[in-house]
Design a protein around this nucleic acid. Structure first.
Lengths: 139, 139
DNA sequence: ATAGAACGTTGCCCGTGGGGCAAGGTCAAT
DNA sequence: ATTGACCTTGCCCCACGGGCAACGTTCTAT
């Protein structure tokens, strides 16, 4: 069975070696097999597992969420329902974030173009009217 | 001159006492005056300064950016040009983030509704087809 | 006056997902 | 044998505080 060093694995999976060690420390992947000199060794199955993690991360799941998915799967259960719930939550979260950012963007636009935003009088106590007169709509 | 404890200041400014201490440690506000028993004391001017920081934070500026703005102002320069640049960058950043999130949202929508996304065969080696067959458009 | 509540002080560890660097051990090719 | 590329662990760093500990101070009520 072919094995891969952490560097090869990182290139193959498309992440950094740091990420792989972090995933191990966080329990997303089991402690790697080691050579006599303590080098980590990975199998193709390990690479597949890491590719799943990378893919899940690209979808915006956190390491904690991914860990739970993997644990569910390892317990023999198909985690698709859980995944669907996570994705639903994530979508709701994204919508919320987009709405917030859109509001903030509008506020910044208004502030920046605020009728020739008078420059702060250097002698006054204020710092910058662009900021001080802005009216954030965010909660 | 009326002075305020850190708790009063926090309430008046609308932030936590932790935040105020952090801003001091980060150099956004000068080390507070102290009572004989080392309690921090703030003047109205201090409160104004903190309100500026809070306002700038609401606009999405980082503590580092705010610090530089305050330093510019303290050097006697009106920081409005700098602020305008920061806001421009922030707006560009927001647009970029919104675009990314929109793409991700679309990917998640497709993945979730992926024609009755077949449940993973518990005997296979995969984890979850919803994730494995998703096709993130993000870079 | 004194007890206890409410406030203040420092300090440390936690999160997210690693990056950067250091000081060293190992492997491959020349 | 040496050199360069790789690996190991460990520690501190990023933003912005939250939570808790252990302890000192001030205020309030009885």
């Amino acid at each position: 069975m072919e094995t891969f060093s952490i560097g090869r694995a990182a290139i193959d999976v498309g992440v950094s070696t740091r990420a792989i060690r972090l995933w191990e420390a966080r329990g997303l992947i089991p402690p790697a097999q080691r050579t006599a000199s303590r080098y980590r060794l990975y199998s193709e199955a390990d690479l597949s597992s890491m590719k799943f993690i990378r893919q899940a991360k690209l979808l915006g799941l956190t390491l904690g969420e991914i860990k739970r998915i993997l644990e569910t799967r390892q317990a023999g259960t198909v985690p698709c329902d859980e995944v669907r719930r996570l994705i639903d939550r994530r979508v709701a979260d994204i919508d919320c974030t987009i709405a917030e950012l859109t509001r903030l963007r509008a506020t910044l636009d208004v502030a920046r173009c605020h009728s020739q935003t008078p420059a702060m009088d250097p002698a006054s106590n204020g710092v910058c009217l662009i900021i001080e007169t802005a009216n954030p709509l965010d909660s």
